[in-house]
């Protein structure tokens, strides 16, 4: 019975978001932007006389589309995450859902899983749409293994962003949760690049450096994972060992933050 309850709650998480039409609207806009961007690239190629620039546009179109899809997926993930639990709490529906024979942690986990499934579906459908457009104009350089790897990395990133969004939504309103989660996404990328280029140094600690190390060591490294995903998409070199360690740190941090959510949520009264 517990497995069926979990299944139905995950299904409900997906249904409540796509039926809300907000996600569908974002999805349609993403596809339209991809279409518009691709159209602009084709128009640019027709006006370009130098063959090198023509080739440059063809070579970079795929990377640009996939990076845009990745960015759009992160935005959609945040939207879904901040609403997953918050909408239940705000509407007092939480009273009814928690009256079922579910643990509170089970409820949170089901909302996380349902949100992740929807976000991953968004990424896959948007990226496949992009690939189809590129294939129609012959600009595609599709590598199935690389694409699968990009889905894997994107899924892990979605998991981390979902947990972060839900955590903020437990305390802050939707607008604030969106902003905090988005800024976390941006800061994580800034911090990662700062650490890569400047290294780690614990001398002359400032507020920024304390904050930087908190983000780097004690939160899921969204910035690092985004960088690895971009390396995979653009088929650049990366070491499997270092990617593996990054993923491991990311997942461990996600689990720790998930348990922090559990502790907070268990104490909440409705």
């Amino acid at each position: 019975m517990m497995n069926e309850l979990n299944y139905h709650l995950i299904k409900n998480t997906i249904e409540k978001e796509y039926r809300n039409k907000g996600i569908i609207t974002l999805f349609i806009f993403t596809l339209l932007f991809i279409l518009a961007g691709h159209g602009l690239a084709i128009a640019a190629k027709e006006f370009v006389i130098e063959s090198n620039l023509n080739t440059f546009i063809s070579d970079t179109s795929q990377g640009i589309i996939l990076n845009f899809v990745s960015f759009a997926t992160n935005i959609v993930t945040i939207f879904i995450a901040i609403s997953a639990v918050k909408s239940d709490v705000d509407s007092s529906l939480i009273n009814q859902v928690l009256s079922f024979p579910l643990t509170r942690f089970g409820y949170i986990l089901n909302r996380v899983i349902g949100s992740c499934i929807l976000s991953i579906a968004f990424y896959v459908i948007s990226s496949v749409f992009g690939f189809i457009l590129l294939a129609l104009t012959g600009d595609i350089k599709f590598d199935f293994l690389n694409y699968i790897l990009s889905i894997v990395f994107m899924s892990i990133q979605i998991f981390g962003m979902t947990i972060t969004g839900i955590l903020f939504s437990l305390y802050i309103n939707k607008v604030g949760s969106f902003l905090f989660t988005f800024f976390f996404y941006v800061f994580s990328k800034v911090v990662y690049h700062n650490v890569v280029y400047n290294g780690l140094s614990f001398e002359n600690l400032s507020i920024f450096s304390v904050f930087k190390y908190f983000i780097h060591f004690l939160t899921p490294r969204v910035g690092e994972l985004t960088y690895i995903a971009e390396q995979v998409i653009s088929k650049s070199d990366f070491t499997i060992m270092s990617a593996g360690l990054s993923v491991l740190h990311f997942l461990v941090m996600c689990i720790i933050w998930l348990f922090i959510i559990k502790l907070i949520f268990n104490k909440r009264e409705f």
Binding site: N20, S91, L93, Q96, S99, F100, P101
Partner: peptide
């Protein structure tokens, strides 16, 4: 223990569900 709620049904003071369902 969440299993204690296996056989109960609950109508809250103010029933609510997603308005677009």
């Amino acid at each position: 223990d969440s299993r204690s709620r296996r056989k109960i049904a609950y109508l809250p003071e103010k029933f609510n569900f997603y308005s677009y369902f």
